[in-house]
Amino acid sequence: MQVFSGNPEIKQGPERLFAKKFYSLVRLVIPQGTTIKRHRSLMTVTVVAIKGQIVFHTDDEETTLVPGQAIVMEPMEFHWLEAPTEDGEVMVIHGVLAHDKKQNQE
């Protein structure tokens, strides 16, 4: 078992807590009024809200996440995040799942 702790001094941006070839764990601090620009990942992305309200966008949907809620996206799905009304914080997990590998081989 490994335990990872974020640095409370980080008030904005990403903090990589763990990274391997096909897996990473990132704490992302988003100050009020900040937008993380539209991007995509080659891996499956799981975003877990841990503080504040985060508005999470894809090209087709918009969802407001509150602590305890999570979103899982497929590889290559464009997305962006914003914290319009208060500071927010999320954990972002990038990973290649077993089904991702199988789909890529077909």
Rank of each mutant, 00 (worst) to 15 (best):
V3C: 06
F4V: 03
G6I: 08
N7F: 13
N7M: 12
E9C: 05
I10D: 07
K11Q: 15
Q12E: 14
G13C: 01
G13K: 02
P14G: 15
E15K: 06
K20H: 10
K20I: 11
Y23P: 00
L28P: 09
V29L: 03
V29H: 07
V29W: 05
I30W: 06
T34D: 07
T35I: 09
T35D: 04
I36W: 08
H39I: 04
H39D: 06
R40V: 02
R40Q: 13
L42T: 10
L42A: 14
A49F: 09
G52P: 00
Q53I: 05
F56Q: 02
D59V: 01
D60H: 14
D60N: 13
E61N: 11
E61L: 09
E62L: 08
T63N: 08
V66Q: 13
G68F: 12
Q69I: 07
A70T: 12
I71G: 01
M73F: 03
M73E: 05
E74L: 14
E77Q: 14
H79R: 13
W80Q: 09
W80C: 04
L81Q: 11
E82D: 14
P84M: 08
E86R: 06
G88W: 12
E89M: 05
M91R: 02
H94Q: 11
H94M: 05
G95R: 10
G95D: 08
H99C: 05
H99Q: 11
D100Y: 10
K101M: 12
K102L: 13
K102Y: 08
N104Q: 13
